[in-house]
Design a binder for these strands. Structure first.
Length: 506
RNA sequence: GUCCCCGUCGUCCAGUGGUUAGGACAUCGCCCUUUCACGGCGGUAACACGGGUUCGAAUCCCGUCGGGGACGCCA
């Protein structure tokens, strides 16, 4: 293990960091947050920032996601030196294109006795896990396959039985690693599971792929979210098994919902697409993310005086200033709440600082872009008699705060409670739906049938939530044009508001 | 439940043994203003608790409590 020392980094390798998003859906604010941190870290040390796509999960793979991630990161102003789109000397940068590499490395581990094949099915494991939970035991793999004889293994292999490869965690002892922000962290090996390294479909899990890639890509500092701390011992064990030098680990605090739980789409808009489409400015978003965790030193009294700063200026800074002053050692470890109220204030500051022409350009590029107007126009062309009526019909597509009164959203033969419950179901159905008119309609109808809601009741409720009115352009088309991220948010906000109102009445 | 991490106003951050515990957002009041917003001024509001260490603890140590994360053939 590395001896404890406060001397400058023993390895004089050039700094290389990476962001490794998984293309499973919309680009996430957490990705932007960790991306920003990695970007700054590299920029401050003259290092390289690598973008690697972790697409080893076939079941959750979303084809459109990768491009959306690129676009979203570029939108907030981050660029990378190496990645699937720009190439680089350590490619390929898509894990699905590196399967041969992982196969070779698994073979190495198998041969050196650091890993073993395991033939249980996912169902069998699930069963065991349930029993363990019921018996209040920690849910863990029991290590049965460790004891398979070579004959048994060969027989299973010959029979074509699917298998996974697991890490053989030592039964005794513990693993200690250094977190650059927290100091040493120790895990007893009896609390570390025999992690699956390669799935039965031949794809590696994150744990194997990230270690192999980080090493091969010469990553010096692993800057990732705190949720990874408990699997870091597995990674350390892997580095040791391969005989590789450890990178430094920096675990960043997790962004939180208002209730302090890990930020999630159920409780907070997390899609960068949502923020872009709702008219948040990219530099405001980046500034806000820089505020999370407190890595930016506040300006000193002298700076405030010499630069003539307002007191609130301490919270307002650009990417360039972050490169200059952001200090990783200052990061506070309490998980910061992603507070939309403050984000909105910050965004307002940025809007007010734009010149009239800049603001005009912002409008033309967002809410009044040609693309958006082109999409909205066909919804109303045959429904209006003067162009002046355009706003009357489409206001909800240009508004942020649409909230129908109960007289509008409550169907005649329904109670408020069952209606809100159904709206929550609609939200779930919409979340799961592909975003085109036919798919949305099918999902909603399926739900209506299951819950005994007529098509009319079903669609009118959603129409009321989306448009705030009983009259609107065609529902499905409106949803499509308004966009998935914003539509979901509108339903979510409707439900939250009604919940609050109900609580007030009590 | 087990393991790990964390703990200053409602929220985001300052504070690294001696401060009237500071700023920003939010909130409340006043001013500006035809309205709203912006802007200006002011107020309410926090060291989770209990033990130590020390002349002195928000700051150091221990415990309790609280919050969070992980415990997947997801990342």
């Amino acid at each position: 293990m590395t001896p404890e020392t406060s001397a400058p980094s023993p390895d004089s390798r050039p700094t290389r960091v990476r962001i490794a998003p998984s293309p499973t859906g919309d680009p996430h604010v957490g990705t932007a947050y960790i991306g920003l941190l990695n970007y700054l870290f590299a920029a401050q040390r003259g290092g390289e920032f690598v973008l690697r796509i972790e697409d080893t999960d076939r079941t959750r793979f979303v084809a459109s996601s990768e491009q959306m991630i690129f676009d979203a990161l570029k939108w907030i102003g981050l660029t990378w030196n190496e990645g699937p789109d720009v190439g680089g000397p350590y490619g390929p940068y898509r894990q699905s294109e590196r399967t041969e590499i992982y196969r070779e490395h698994v073979e190495l581990l198998l041969r050196s006795g650091h890993a073993y094949r395991s033939f249980e099915t996912a169902e069998e494991l699930e069963e065991v896990r349930k029993q363990q939970m019921a018996a209040k035991q920690p849910p863990r793999y029991n290590g049965a396959a460790r004891h398979l004889s070579q004959e048994e293994i060969d027989a299973n292999l010959a029979a074509g039985k699917p298998f996974v490869v697991r890490l053989k965690v030592p039964l005794e002892g513990s693993t200690t690693f250094r977190d650059e922000l927290r100091g040493e962290i120790t895990f007893d090996h009896n609390n570390v599971d025999d992690q699956v390294l390669m799935k039965s479909d031949g794809f590696p899990t994150y744990h194997l792929a990230n270690v192999v890639d980080d090493h091969l890509m010469r990553i010096t500092d692993v800057i990732r979210a705190e949720e990874w701390i408990s699997s870091t011992p597995k990674h350390v064990l892997l580095y040791n098994a391969f005989g590789w030098e450890l990178p430094k680990f920096w675990h960043m605090p997790l962004l939180r919902n208002v209730d302090k739980s890990k930020i999630s789409k159920r409780k907070n808009p997390v899609s960068l697409v949502y923020y872009r489409e709702s008219g948040y400015l990219p530099n405001a978003m980046l500034n806000f993310l820089g505020l999370m965790g407190g890595g930016m030193a506040q300006p000193t009294e002298q700076e405030i005086v010499s630069k003539g700063l307002n007191t609130k200026e301490g919270d307002i800074f650009s990417l360039a200033e972050m490169k200059e002053r952001f200090d990783f050692q200052r990061i506070s470890l309490g998980g910061p709440v992603f507070d939309l109220v403050k984000l909105k204030w910050l965004n307002g500051e940025y809007i007010r600082r734009q010149s009239p022409d800049e603001f005009f350009q912002t409008l033309r590029q967002t809410l009044f872009s040609d693309a958006y107007l082109r999409a909205v126009a066909p919804l109303v062309q045959e429904r209006i008699e003067t162009v002046g009526q355009f706003g009357d019909m489409t206001g909800f597509l240009f508004s942020d705060n649409v909230l129908p009164p109960e007289s509008v959203w409550l169907p005649k033969k329904r109670q408020p409670e069952e209606t809100l419950a159904f709206a929550a179901e609609q939200l779930t159905a919409l979340e799961a739906s592909t975003w085109d008119a036919a798919s949305i309609e099918a999902e909603l109808k399926k739900l209506g049938e299951a819950k005994q809601w007529s098509v009319k009741e079903n669609f009118m409720l959603l129409r009321a939530i989306l448009s705030g009115s009983l009259t609107s352009p065609p529902l499905m088309e409106s949803l499509v044009v308004f966009g998935k991220a914003r539509s979901l948010d509108r339903v979510r906000r409707f439900l939250e508001t009604q919940k609050k109102l109900a609580n007030q009445r009590k």
